[in-house]
Simulated assay, not measured.
Amino acid sequence: MNPAYVAFEGDHRIAAGNLADVARAARQLLDQRKDAAILVFNGHSSALVDIDLRGSVDDVLARLPKPESATADEQPAPAAPRGPGRPRLGVVAREVTLLPRHWDWLAQQKGGASVALRKLIDEARRSSGDRDRTRLAQDAAYRFMTAMAGNRPHYEDAIRALFAHDRRRFATLIADWPVDIRDHAIKLAYSDQAD
């Protein structure tokens, strides 16, 4: 399982874990080396995460977004007016645009349109789960490699091998890359597969 967040400074991985731990390590490195260029990645998607690293460690941590779950001593936000859906169950109403023939078909299904759509989505998720996990892993590896290794030898060939599902060639092409970058790229690319 990939960590929630990963920070790199140059070719070296400096931290991995929750956002607070990664931000703390990044700020501490900047305290030691003012010229450090730090990139923080979402550990699952490899999207770059923008963290304001100005000030002290406490300042940085205070500016981080709050986690989704509230702690027991925090007061819950005032309740918003209730709309459609079942918010207590996590059901949220959103707009779906379909052609009339699709709406006609949905209207004929047992349980109505919402039940039919949920069943269709669940079935699609079951039948394409492995393909989806592989695609997401490849996309994450691609984003990370583009940010961290876009100018490395064999980068383009490694990307081709990644999307061609040629694990052996991929590993061979990136074998001479810095260890932390190479190992993280491999972990991202094949996190959906057993070794």
Score class of each variant (00 low, 15 high):
R82C: 11
R63W: 06
P81Q: 05
Q75T: 13
G83C: 08
P84H: 12
G83L: 14
R82G: 15
K66E: 07
L64R: 09
A70H: 05
L89M: 15
P65F: 05
G85S: 05
A72V: 11
A80G: 05
L89Q: 13
L64E: 03
V60K: 03
A62E: 15
R86Q: 14
A62Q: 12
R82Q: 14
R88G: 15
E68F: 10
E74F: 04
D59N: 14
A70Q: 12
A62R: 11
P67K: 05
G85T: 09
V57T: 15
P84L: 14
P67H: 03
A80C: 01
E74K: 07
D59C: 13
A77M: 02
T71N: 12
D59G: 09
S69W: 01
E68L: 12
A79E: 12
G83T: 07
P67T: 02
D58P: 10
A62P: 08
E68H: 04
D59L: 11
R63A: 08
A70K: 09
P78H: 00
K66G: 01
A80Y: 05
P76H: 04
R86K: 13
A80N: 01
A70S: 14
A77C: 07
P65K: 03
E68N: 04
L61F: 06
L61Y: 04
V57A: 10
R82V: 12
P81R: 06
T71Q: 09
V57L: 12
A70W: 03
P67C: 04
P76K: 03
R88K: 12
R88P: 00
R88M: 14
L89R: 09
S69C: 04
Q75S: 11
D59I: 05
D73P: 15
A72Y: 08
A80E: 06
A77G: 02
